[in-house]
Simulated scan of single mutants.
Amino acid sequence: MDLTFGSDVLGAVLTGSRARGTATDHSDLDLVVVVAEQSTPWRHDVRTAALDQVTCTVEALADTSTTWQRYAYRGAQVLLDRLDGQITALVERQATPTAAEAAEWARAGLDAYVNQLYRAVKSRRDGFPEAARLDEMESIPWLLATVFALHGRLRPYNKYLDWELATYPLSPFWTAELQPAKVAGGALRLFPAVAELARERGHGDVLDAWGFDLALISSAAG
């Protein structure tokens, strides 16, 4: 595929599985093309089986307020940077939370994780095992968001969780426990370890705000 760029293009960034080396026979090219100006911050130009291309302004690439899309830049390859490293720096900024961002996400994720576990424990206690299982499953995204944020990191997309842990491992404990096959059934079991990590990072007040309910979760996590 021809990836030559006109003079109006300031940068080009390859994202997705081809950038990370995890492509399959079904993988397309995920390409972000950066220009100085256009009528909208983001424009989806091509969406085919072979190429998914969006065009954005430099200002849009610098905007980190939309958290869900930021992991797209983890492991991205900058194919073109006509701004003397600025495009590369903006891609790195998207993929790397600040300490303040990570702390904010950790606190929000931790509270949501505890909330879902509390619902699961109550459902199981009250004789609703199917509801409890669903509640515990719903806690897994919050578990992942919390643990990665407590390590100053973005939560990976599920598809790239294996890649993230292999490429940028956490401690041996967390790298092992967050493997997809293991974490999928370990949301409640991992609560004591998450709570310990959160307290080490200074977020014990989020846990303590749950009062007696925290003991109920801890007892069920056993």
Rank of each mutant, 00 (worst) to 15 (best):
E196F: 12
V34S: 00
M1P: 14
L110E: 03
W174D: 03
R155P: 08
Q116H: 14
R74E: 14
L117D: 01
D30H: 07
A120P: 07
P41Y: 05
G11A: 01
P192W: 03
D84M: 06
V54D: 13
H26L: 14
A187V: 06
R201P: 05
G16W: 04
L3D: 07
A215G: 14
Q69N: 14
A198I: 05
R189M: 04
D111I: 11
F128Q: 15
P192S: 07
V114K: 08
A108P: 10
V54I: 15
L14E: 02
R43K: 14
A99W: 11
R82W: 02
A89D: 08
V35R: 03
R119N: 11
L110M: 08
E136C: 08
T146K: 05
W105A: 12
V13N: 03
A62L: 01
A120K: 08
R124E: 10
E92L: 06
A76C: 02
S39I: 14
A95H: 04
A145L: 15
V35I: 04
A62G: 08
A198K: 03
L134Y: 15
Q86M: 07
G6L: 07
A149N: 02
A184E: 11
V91E: 01
T40Y: 13
T96N: 04
A106P: 01
L216C: 12
T146L: 03
D45P: 11
A60I: 05
G75M: 00
T64M: 05
A193Y: 12
A149Y: 04
S27R: 09
V114E: 09
D162N: 15
G16D: 07
G11W: 03
A120L: 08
V114T: 09
D208A: 09
G6A: 03
F173L: 10
Y168A: 11
W42Y: 15
